[in-house]
Amino acid sequence: MILCELATSAAGSGHRFDDERHWAASLALRFANRKGTTRLVQARHQGPLRVQRPFYPEGSTEACHVYVLHPPGGLVSGDALTIRAHIERDAHALLTTPAANKLYKADSQGVAWSQHTELNVDDGGTLEWLPQETIAFDGSKGSQRTHIALHGSARCLGWEIMALGRPASELPYVSGRIEQHFRLTLDGKPLWLERQPLDPAHPRFIGRWGQGGATVQATLWAVGLEDAAAAIDELREALPDNPRWAVTVRHGVLLFRYLGNSRNEAWALCEQAWHLLRPRWIEREAHTPRIWFT
C-alpha cells in the first residue's frame, strides 16, 4: 500500500522510479558580438545544467570562455541532457567543462540515458568546443547525439574523448551499449556523418576492423583552415610518432583520430594538436582554460 502511494505521488509530481522515468535537463546559450566583444546574451536552463560567468582571459575582444556545469557530475538511468549553443556572426566562443563527464551503470531495469548537443554557428562566427573527457562505466546504456550546423564562413574546432571502463579500478567495460551519432553540416549539406555502437558483445568491439579492443578513443575536428595539408604536415612532424593516432582531411574537415588505451595520452595529443592548429586556424595562440588546471 505504501509503495503504491509512493509511486502515485512520484508520477503525479513528474518523477518516476519505474522503467519510464525521464529526468530532463537543458541549457540554451547564445553568443553575440556587441561592439567588438563577444557577449553571452542568453543562458536559459532547466534542471541541473548551468554556466559560470563568461571569462575573457585572452582580452575583451577575443574569445569568450564559458564553462558548462552539470553538478551531478554524470548521467544515470533516465537522465536526458540537452545542450544548445548558437554563435552569431562575428562572435567567438570557447566552451569547455570543469571535469570529466561520467556515464554510470544502468539500473536493474536497464533504463537508458541520453545526451544531445546542438551547436549552431552563423556565417563569420567561431566556435571552440573543448569538453573534458567522458568516462563510461561498465553497464552504461544510452545514446549521444552531436549536431554541429555551420553557415557560410563559420569556423569550428572541437573534440570528443571517450574512455570505456575504469582500468585503474580493474573495472573494464564489458557490458552495456552506447550509441554515438555525429553530424557536421555546412549550409545544410553534410560534411561528416558518423554513427557507431559501443557494444562489448558486438564483434567490432574487439575486431581489428573496428574498436580492436581499445578502451579510449578521441576525435578532433577543424573547419576553416586555409591550408589543411600544411596543418597535417605540421601535426605529423610535431606529434609523437606512434600508430595510435592518424590525421586526414575530408570535404574541408580536418579529422584527427586516436584509438588506444590511455586517457592521458589521448588528452595530451588533442591538446597539443589544438595548440598547433589554432595559430593557423584563427591566427591566435591557444590559451588553455584555467579550469583544466584545477
Rank of each mutant, 00 (worst) to 15 (best):
M1N: 13
A10T: 07
A10H: 15
G14L: 05
R16Q: 12
A24Y: 09
A25I: 03
S26W: 08
L27P: 04
F31Q: 00
A32F: 00
T38H: 01
T38Y: 07
A43W: 02
R44W: 13
S60C: 09
Y67S: 15
H70P: 00
H70A: 07
H70W: 05
P71G: 07
G74N: 01
L75N: 04
A80D: 14
A85W: 02
A85E: 02
H86C: 14
H86F: 08
E88N: 11
A91V: 00
L94W: 10
L94Q: 10
L94S: 05
W113D: 03
Q115V: 07
T117R: 06
E118K: 09
V121I: 06
G124Q: 01
T126Q: 06
P131Y: 01
E133I: 10
T134W: 07
T134Q: 09
I135T: 03
D138F: 12
S143Y: 06
S143K: 11
R145V: 14
T146P: 04
R155F: 05
C156G: 04
M162Y: 11
P167L: 11
Y173L: 06
Y173N: 09
Q180T: 13
R183S: 12
K189A: 08
P190V: 04
L191N: 02
L193H: 04
P197I: 02
H202I: 01
H202C: 06
P203V: 14
R204T: 13
R204H: 14
R204K: 11
V216H: 07
T219G: 04
T219H: 05
T219I: 06
W221M: 04
E226G: 07
A228E: 07
A228Q: 07
A238G: 06
D241V: 09
P243Y: 00
P243D: 08
R250V: 15
R250A: 12
L254S: 05
F256N: 05
L259P: 00
A266M: 06
L269C: 10
E271K: 04
E271F: 03
A273P: 02
L277Y: 01
R278D: 03
P279E: 07
P279F: 02
A286W: 07
T294L: 12
